[in-house]
Amino acid sequence: MNTKPAQNPEFAIEFRDVSYEIRDARNEKIDLARERSIVSHISLAISHSETLVLLGRSGSGKTTLLKLINRMLAPSQGQVLVEGRATTDCDAIRLRRGIGYVIQEAGLFPHFTVAQNIALVPSLEKWDHARTVARVEELLRLVGLNPAEFSSRKPRELSGGQRQRVGVARALAADPPILLMDEPFGALDPVTRAELQREFSALASRLKKTIVFVTHDIREALLLASRIALMEAGRLVAVAPPQDFLTHAHPEVQAFTNCLDTPTGGSQ
């Protein structure tokens, strides 16, 4: 993929020969300077309304790739296009408010109620009160939580699964066309995880969002993905829909599919 004009509306997200290396932490982001890995020469186009699962071992660069999309990280080389525009040409704050983000442990604000957490982006965008309240109720119902019961609770009064549901609701608040999810179900017990995976799968097909979903769990990838992109040591080694993925010849794919054979493993 060479440099073409920056307009390419057929893709929601496009990586054009993107590399990211750790540079010396500038003083602006001391806290987030750790745990970054390197990715090199990534080219990948993600269509509208598809659920692309980034699969790979820990440290393979999945999260780095995700953070390049909403410019939590800026590419050292190449371009990341969101809705046809290079992320480095966009205002990072505006870009992020238009992209939902869900992380492991949800990252909810402990001093906010559930409703305030969900209303975060609407409040930043200065929605009026009535619209915000209506939206929060709608979203709580969408993720299967009763608004009357949960709106005024604090995150500490929720179970892990409920927190993660609130995390999804918060990401969806301003109805962003793109949703980024970084191992959102990784910290849940297996039963809750399976429950949320099923519900999320149904939700995803209903909402028609472009979803980029990071996981190291091949079962989760097979369940949720419209396409699986496998990362190994900062490189993209295989991209295929789930049904073709299992028969892919790459040794790293084999390593992952082997997990499926062991009766107990795979979901950890």
């Binding site: 987030l32 992020r96 992380i103 990252g107």
Partner: peptide, 21 residues
């Protein structure tokens, strides 16, 4: 101020909050 949980700060940044916010 520096001891705030990393996942909370990451979420805040990803939601499009400015540094001042």
């Amino acid at each position: 101020l520096t001891g705030v949980d990393r996942s909370i700060l990451e979420a805040a940044e990803a939601m499009g909050m400015t540094n001042a916010q």
